[in-house]
């Protein structure tokens, strides 16, 4: 009987251990998905869910604070994403926080990022709906970039024409007399400034992307598979290069013009009177500088990135 009892005890321990472990695993999985902690439910409406699924994590300040509970199409332009957020972090999340769909690393799971905004607001509550922000994807970035290139091309074309007109003495007078033209010039310069800003922004993005690509070696394989993307990329890089070359020429021309204007006192009396114009002119020069600087940085980054190395090497060869 004693033998029997100890055998029963052993069996009991065995069964107990198995059951406890099973329950333990169930609990661990559940707690990772916030099934047992106290939660609140919030939502956000997106234009594009971007492959987000229920069970994906929700991050605030880079920390997992909850999971996506449900993704549901409301109408043809809106997707409702419901999220379960841990109760204890709700004191840090404001009502005006912005939700965006992102990726864990370059190839990881989709997730919802909640970003805080500096403006003051109340803390979030059950059932609140967050504003959303569409995060830029690599493909969209490329699109913006090529559009920007187009713009720059057009503008430089205009500038070229203008400066060639300026170079011709007789037309200078016409030009100076023509107030609409000055207005145009001013607008053009404003445009250049805008473009410069945008280019800098895009170049920054591109640099970040490149850095990401360089770091995530593993994802490179997958990215390289996408030949159309890299082709696009090199195309746009070529464009950027051409444009920045043009820009350099144009800015050279422009400085010549201003010099001319400064020297030719009588001729540009009106022009000198307009201090704002000179100021604008200076500023746009500056912007152009930063713009081109951005481009060259950009180029540098591209040169170092692995999949464009080949292209640059080839270019160097061709120069020889």
């Amino acid at each position: 009987m004693i033998k029997d009892l100890s055998r029963n005890v052993k069996l009991g321990i065995f069964v107990f251990a198995g059951t406890i472990f099973f329950i333990g695993v169930l609990y661990m999985i559940g707690s990772k998905r916030n099934l047992f902690s106290s939660n609140i439910l919030i939502s956000a409406k997106f234009y594009n869910a971007d492959g987000l699924m229920s069970g994906n994590s929700v991050r605030f300040a880079g920390i997992n604070i909850g999971t996506v509970k449900n993704v549901e199409i409301i109408n043809d332009t809106t997707v409702l994403v419901q999220m379960v957020i841990e109760n204890k972090v709700t004191t840090h999340i404001k009502k005006n926080s912005i939700a965006s769909i992102g990726t864990d690393g370059l190839m990881g799971n989709k997730l919802v990022n909640i970003g805080s905004v500096s403006a003051a607001a109340e803390t979030i509550e059950e059932g609140d709906e967050l504003k959303t922000f569409k995060a830029i994807s690599a493909a969209e970035m490329m699109q913006t970039l090529s559009a920007t290139n187009e713009n720059i091309k057009i503008i430089t074309e205009d500038l070229k024409q203008i400066s060639s007109k300026l170079n011709k003495n007789n037309s200078l007078w016409n030009f100076l007399a023509d107030t609409t033209l000055t207005e145009n010039l001013r607008q053009t310069i404003v445009s250049i400034k805008l473009t410069g800003d945008r280019t800098a922004y895009v170049a920054g993005d591109l640099k970040q992307l490149m850095a990401g690509v360089k770091e995530g070696k593993g994802t490179l394989g997958a990215l390289l598979m996408d030949t159309s993307l890299s082709k696009n990329l090199s195309q746009s890089v070529v464009n950027i290069k051409l444009v920045s070359n043009d820009l350099a020429i144009v800015s050279g021309d422009l400085s010549n013009i201003t010099k001319g204007i400064k020297n030719g006192e009588g001729a540009v009396g009106t022009l000198l009177m307009d201090t704002t114009f000179v100021h604008n002119m200076n500023k746009s020069m500056e912007n152009l500088n930063t713009g081109t600087k951005g481009f060259s940085e950009n180029m540098e980054a591209l040169k170092h990135s692995i999949f464009l190395r080949k292209y640059f090497k080839k270019q160097a060869k061709d120069k020889k």
Binding site: R7, N8, K10, L11, I13, F14, V15
Partner: peptide
């Protein structure tokens, strides 16, 4: 049954 559970379960662990 308990005897068999012992042999099948505990003894195979």
């Amino acid at each position: 049954m308990i005897r068999q559970c012992y042999y099948v379960g505990y003894r195979s662990l």
